[in-house]
Design a protein around this nucleic acid. Structure first.
Length: 215
DNA sequence: CACCAGGCAAGTA
DNA sequence: TACTTGCATGGT
């Protein structure tokens, strides 16, 4: 079976099983960017608590967050884990967002996605997945977001080797599918959704994996 | 109790 | 380049 066909088959099965995932769960593009950093190696439920703390203090704003003392910021985002390092990473990103783009999403959307990706990767604390999450979910650029679940599911289905790089996995999708923002949005979200139930490092299975008959 | 979550950077060789 | 380690809360 061709790769394109298999990728479409997987997508169809996941969508039929789980339905639309409505990503990214945030009220504004800026909230997406903050969430992208807070969710690094962290359960989304913990991120929600951190974001709620920011909202409760009316601090979910680029300038207010950037001016906030590091200790206070760390305290507010504490539930997200790694709070000291994430407070610094947030400030690193905020400085870039303020200095280079005037804290305007619109200004960022004007920039070529390859250029912008490289700029994001220069921010200490923003790696490939975080950069791509911001590009896709906050700025609506057609880039495929790769995470641990994506690699695990794809390697299990023989689409990439087990030790594939981020770019290997990303190319699998971007070179075989139409580069469509809505498709990439839903596909990544579905892979995460499926991974949580059926492709964790170790967890008792619940229900029946919709991709079981493809293995 | 152990294990893991929508990673990343820094250090070492 | 390839491997190792620190970062940390909260749920199962």
């Amino acid at each position: 079976m061709g790769i394109l066909k298999k990728l479409r088959l997987i997508y169809g099965k996941l969508y039929k099983s789980f339905g639309p995932q409505r990503w990214w769960p945030a009220d504004t593009p800026f909230e997406v960017m903050v969430g992208a950093i807070l969710t690094q190696n962290t359960n989304w439920q913990n991120v929600e608590k951190a974001v709620a703390n920011l909202k409760k203090n009316k601090a979910l704003d680029p300038v207010k967050l950037y001016r906030m003392p590091l200790k206070k910021l760390a305290l507010l985002i504490r539930p997200a884990g790694y709070f000291n390092i994430k407070a610094k990473r947030l400030k690193n990103f905020l400085k870039f967002y303020l200095d280079d783009y005037g804290a305007k999403v619109k200004n960022m959307r004007c920039v070529n996605r390859h250029i912008l990706r490289n700029e994001l990767l220069c921010v200490n604390g923003v790696g490939q997945e975080t950069a791509d999450s911001i590009l896709l979910y906050a700025l609506h650029k057609p880039v495929f977001v790769v995470d641990a679940y994506t690699k695990r599911i794809c390697s299990r289905h023989g689409l990439i080797p087990e030790d594939a790089s981020y770019q290997d996995a990303q190319k699998l999708f971007m070179q075989n599918l139409k580069n469509d923002v809505q498709l990439f949005n839903e596909y990544h979200a579905l892979l995460v959704r499926a991974g949580k139930d059926f492709c964790r490092k170790s967890k008792p299975r619940c229900g029946i994996c919709p991709l079981k008959d493809l293995l």
